[in-house]
Simulated scan of single mutants.
Amino acid sequence: MVGRKQFDVDEALRHAMHVFWRWGYSEASIDRLTEGTGLGRSSLYSTFGDKSALFRKSLQRYEQTYHPLYSQALSGSHPNPSAVVAAYLQVTLNRIADPTVPDGCLVTVSATQFPALDAEGRAMVRAMIDGVRAMLEQALLAAGADEQEAAELALCALATNKSLAVLSRAGFSSEELATVAAAAARIPQDTDPATGSRVPRAAHRGRGAVRHRQKP
């Protein structure tokens, strides 16, 4: 039929997302995008707009694919903050282990190329990061962290997520990445040596400050 697209638009967008994911915005040339999607330049532009518009659509596709997985992992019942961090990072490890997608993370590689993005692209990347950070904080609060602890642990878990993405692109093994994630999940497990119970991180800081003041 005249005017009807002879290709799967959603599948083409998935492939475009993989090109941006693998190469980053700067190196995702139009030639690479046409090769990755199997579309000619005219079809690519008429369907998705220019490169910046296609990048934003790819970000939206990535968010629709992976953020629900983080939301599901974080919305369950967790016995403690450590379990929250572990559940969050397991989603990351699962994605990295998926052989059908590029290594790393589209959001992470995009964040490293902020100067190359337009204002709307930068805003989308930051909003996606902030959205996951907010989910983490809420889950940590629900698992018993106080507000300051939740904010600190969410930022630490987020940083670990980005580190895993970078290390995976550098060829670190799944075992090494799992070791990083397990170590990060142990961070909330501060305990009082006298009672064996978990102590809020703020309390640790307070005791450390007292000891510091008592030094001669």
Rank of each mutant, 00 (worst) to 15 (best):
residue 61 R to E: 08
residue 181 A to R: 03
residue 124 M to G: 00
residue 71 S to V: 11
residue 214 Q to T: 14
residue 76 G to K: 05
residue 28 A to L: 07
residue 46 S to Y: 12
residue 151 A to F: 13
residue 83 A to C: 03
residue 11 E to C: 09
residue 45 Y to L: 15
residue 29 S to F: 10
residue 91 V to T: 08
residue 205 R to G: 09
residue 142 A to R: 12
residue 73 A to Y: 02
residue 9 V to L: 12
residue 99 P to L: 01
residue 118 D to Q: 09
residue 80 N to D: 14
residue 104 G to K: 00
residue 177 L to Q: 06
residue 154 A to R: 01
residue 209 A to N: 12
residue 82 S to T: 10
residue 212 H to F: 07
residue 9 V to G: 11
residue 94 N to P: 03
residue 192 D to L: 09
residue 128 M to H: 01
residue 94 N to A: 12
residue 120 E to V: 04
residue 92 T to M: 08
residue 23 W to K: 08
residue 167 L to D: 06
residue 215 K to A: 14
residue 209 A to C: 11
residue 8 D to T: 09
residue 171 G to Q: 03
residue 39 L to T: 08
residue 93 L to F: 00
residue 6 Q to S: 12
residue 32 R to L: 05
residue 51 K to E: 02
residue 40 G to Y: 05
residue 8 D to S: 11
residue 41 R to Q: 12
residue 22 R to E: 15
residue 107 V to P: 05
residue 72 Q to S: 14
residue 155 L to A: 14
residue 21 W to M: 04
residue 114 F to T: 11
residue 146 D to T: 14
residue 196 G to T: 09
residue 23 W to Y: 11
residue 164 L to H: 00
residue 178 A to F: 11
residue 211 R to E: 07
residue 43 S to H: 14
residue 128 M to V: 03
residue 40 G to N: 07
residue 145 A to D: 03
residue 159 A to P: 04
residue 155 L to T: 14
residue 108 T to V: 13
residue 130 D to Y: 00
residue 70 Y to Q: 05
residue 65 T to Q: 07
residue 198 R to T: 08
residue 155 L to R: 13
residue 69 L to I: 03
residue 61 R to I: 06
residue 92 T to Q: 07
residue 162 K to D: 13
residue 32 R to M: 03
residue 22 R to P: 02
residue 49 G to F: 03
residue 48 F to T: 01
residue 146 D to S: 12
residue 111 A to F: 10
residue 115 P to N: 07
residue 178 A to W: 09
residue 107 V to R: 05
residue 199 V to W: 01
residue 123 A to V: 01
residue 205 R to H: 10
residue 191 T to I: 14
residue 21 W to L: 05
residue 131 G to K: 00
residue 210 V to M: 13
residue 145 A to Y: 01
residue 106 L to R: 02
residue 209 A to L: 14
residue 58 S to C: 00
residue 89 L to M: 01
residue 99 P to T: 01
residue 196 G to Q: 08
residue 110 S to R: 06
residue 148 Q to N: 11
residue 105 C to Q: 04
